[in-house]
């Protein structure tokens, strides 16, 4: 009797599911390299440039290393300090309004009912955000035109005389502030609305049963959920206002006089009109430092983990 032998199935090489020590690096590499290329390298280049005499229209002078000379020159530059102070004034003018209006709109949209209206308003909030800065500036030029602008038309309806918005230093400053508020209040509203949607329903409903005061509800229940959003808004808007350029440039070019000459307009002028890249880089690096300091301050002042 012949014995039946069955060959064992050929042994497959086991699939290697374990990760080598380089695997995480390989997964992270594309993101890190991209970040390096578009974020870190330009920043390092700006730092190096800021330590050199680097004028693109004086290439025959070379690009000698000048140490901290550009930083000292910037800090001693009266115009830089003036434009920075004007930017700070702009910030404290628009931010409270944007925050107050943003919270108000978010609370209105958070109320139960009016489903269709809320949906329409939410979509329409995106429109100003999606509008290009330069276009916002051009719209601003039309709105605040002394002769046929909508702003003066409104004023006339209420029996007020028309103002020379863009030809008057205070009027021009107010006009760019209004356009910034128009563009960025929806952003604040959407961030706060996201915060409000994080409030647990049962907590909010219980609170509504406890109190009929919307202010008490806001203060004790909703506010903690708004603080992370508030921190984000403050950080993002600080950085954004420090580099606000297109809208103001198309609307006023920094004038009349120096009424709307914000720091970013000044840096652009130094960098791309005079082409003094060394000084402009030093200015930009100082603004970066300022943004980081402000961000840390905002985080320590407002950011709270929600328990």
């Amino acid at each position: 009797m012949a014995s039946l032998t069955i060959d064992p199935p050929p042994r497959r090489r086991p699939v290697c599911l374990s990760h080598g020590r380089w695997t995480p690096f390989l997964f992270l590499a594309p993101a890190v390299l991209t970040l390096f290329a578009i974020g870190i390298y330009p920043t390092l280049f700006a730092v190096v440039t800021s330590l050199r005499h680097y004028n693109l229209t004086r290439t025959h002078d070379g690009f000698p290393f000048v140490g901290l000379h550009n930083y000292i020159a910037v800090l001693a530059d009266h115009t830089f300090r003036e434009t920075l102070a004007r930017t700070a004034l702009f910030y404290v003018t628009v931010m409270p309004v944007e925050l107050a209006l943003g919270v108000t709109i978010a609370l209105a949209l958070h109320r139960p009912g009016w489903t269709l209206m809320r949906a329409v308003v939410r979509v329409s909030l995106v429109v100003p955000l999606a509008t290009t800065y330069a276009v916002v500036g051009l719209i601003g030029r039309l709105i605040f035109n002394r002769d046929f602008g909508v702003a003066n038309q409104f004023a006339n309806w209420f029996g007020m005389p028309g103002l020379d918005w863009l030809g008057d230093p205070r009027g021009a400053f107010a006009a760019i502030a209004v356009m910034d508020i128009w563009q960025w209040t929806p952003f604040c509203a959407l961030i706060f609305l996201a915060g409000l949607s994080m409030v647990p329903n049962e907590v909010e409903e219980a609170a509504r049963l406890e109190t009929s005061s919307p202010l008490a509800l806001l203060r004790h229940v909703q506010l903690p959920f708004l603080l992370p959003g508030l921190t984000a808004v403050l950080i993002l808007r600080s950085a954004d206002i420090l580099k606000l350029f297109d809208m103001v440039f198309t609307m006023t070019r920094g004038g009349p006089g120096a009424a709307t000459d914000l720091v970013s307009i000044y840096i652009q002028r130094v960098g791309f009109r005079v082409f003094d890249m060394g000084t402009a880089s030093a200015q930009a690096i100082l603004l970066l430092v300022l943004t980081i300091v402000l961000s840390r301050l905002f985080i320590s002042a407002f950011y709270r983990e929600i328990d």
């Binding site: 229209t57 230093p169 004038g255 009349p256 006089g257 120096a258 002028r269 009109r273 005079v274 082409f275």
Partner: peptide
């Protein structure tokens, strides 16, 4: 290119009476 910026700033400040 540098001088025109200064002229533009102070030229308009003159006109505004600043």
């Amino acid at each position: 290119s540098s001088i025109t910026e200064v002229v533009a700033e102070f030229g308009s400040k003159m006109m505004l009476g600043e």
